[in-house]
Amino acid sequence: MSLATKTEFKAEAIKPKIGSRVLNTREDLLSGEFAAEIRELLEARGVLVFPQVSFTDEEQVAFTKTLGTFAPERKGGEEVISKITLDARENPMAAEYLKGSLYWHIDGTRNDVPILASLLSCRVPSPRGTGNTGFANTYAAFDDLPDDKKAEYEQYRVVHGPWASLFYYEAEPSLAKLQGYAQIGEQELPLVWKHKSGRKSLVIGCTAAQVVGKSALESAMIIHGLREWATGEEFTYSHEWEVGDLVMWDNTGTMHRAEAYDPTCGRMMHRTKLEGEEPFE
């Protein structure tokens, strides 16, 4: 009588402090057998790459649901794929708002509980050398700070709002546009997120407007200084897309950004998300 051989979970590190490639087959991944290992590796590494796994939309939704609670992005709770593109012909409303995605950020800073993770699959890449997606490990960036800076930053709270990201790509927006972005809301968050796991990460990015109790200049020195630190070479990974790639990142411990590309080139990504499981604290 033969015994069934258990399939191994296969992964390899991309860089010492960020990123791993998961090398199991599409069938392995869809089975849900490795959901626990994937979740554990995601928290440890920040970013997981599934090279050319080539999920259909339905399979991407199914895979997402093996890992946690699917987060619908439309009213009514529809379990649909979101098309991510700067091409206004494909997505005229989102194309303007998604300009902020070209700058380092964390999703959901206006919410008490941000999403846990995003999963992005490549349908149409941009021309080679453009349109990569960059990731920065804010767990590792905090861990490597000097102890005196850790103690200092843990005391601070920061006002975040999507309106702050507007000034990254439009220096002189109209009052009407600024008012529209302001209506989305803002939130006061800790600069250092103390996770239920015991780990700590930085909460920074282009939505960070001002450190509470600090002047505009002092705030900029802190916010932009930490962004520069956290996006240094050792903490970052830039993914060059191939058709069929799926990349998943831990939204609670990384920042991300799309790297510049021609909005008319047809670049198209399909996104799903996992519901958040812990508030900013």
Rank of each mutant, 00 (worst) to 15 (best):
R267F: 06
Q179N: 14
Q155V: 07
G129R: 01
I84M: 04
A117F: 00
E172Y: 10
P173Q: 04
N251R: 09
H256T: 05
D87H: 00
V247F: 11
Y168P: 07
H270S: 10
E43W: 11
E240A: 11
D28K: 07
S118D: 06
V80M: 05
R45N: 08
E218P: 10
A117L: 05
V49N: 05
T85G: 10
S121N: 05
L98R: 13
K273A: 15
A35W: 00
E33T: 13
H105C: 06
S126Q: 05
R21P: 01
L42M: 06
D112G: 11
A216I: 14
G161Q: 14
E40W: 08
A220V: 08
L119Y: 01
A182M: 13
V124F: 08
A136S: 07
G161K: 12
R123I: 11
N137M: 11
A36F: 06
F142C: 03
L120H: 01
E170W: 11
V80L: 14
M269Y: 09
Y169S: 11
L86E: 11
V211R: 03
D262C: 02
G129M: 09
V53I: 14
R110M: 13
L178I: 15
A71P: 12
I38H: 00
L48E: 03
M93P: 01
E27Q: 06
R227M: 11
E186I: 08
E275I: 08
K65I: 03
K273T: 15
L226Q: 07
N24W: 01
F280P: 00
K177G: 04
P162V: 03
W104F: 06
K83A: 13
A140N: 04
T56K: 04
T272G: 05
S54M: 02
F235T: 09
G225D: 08
G180W: 08
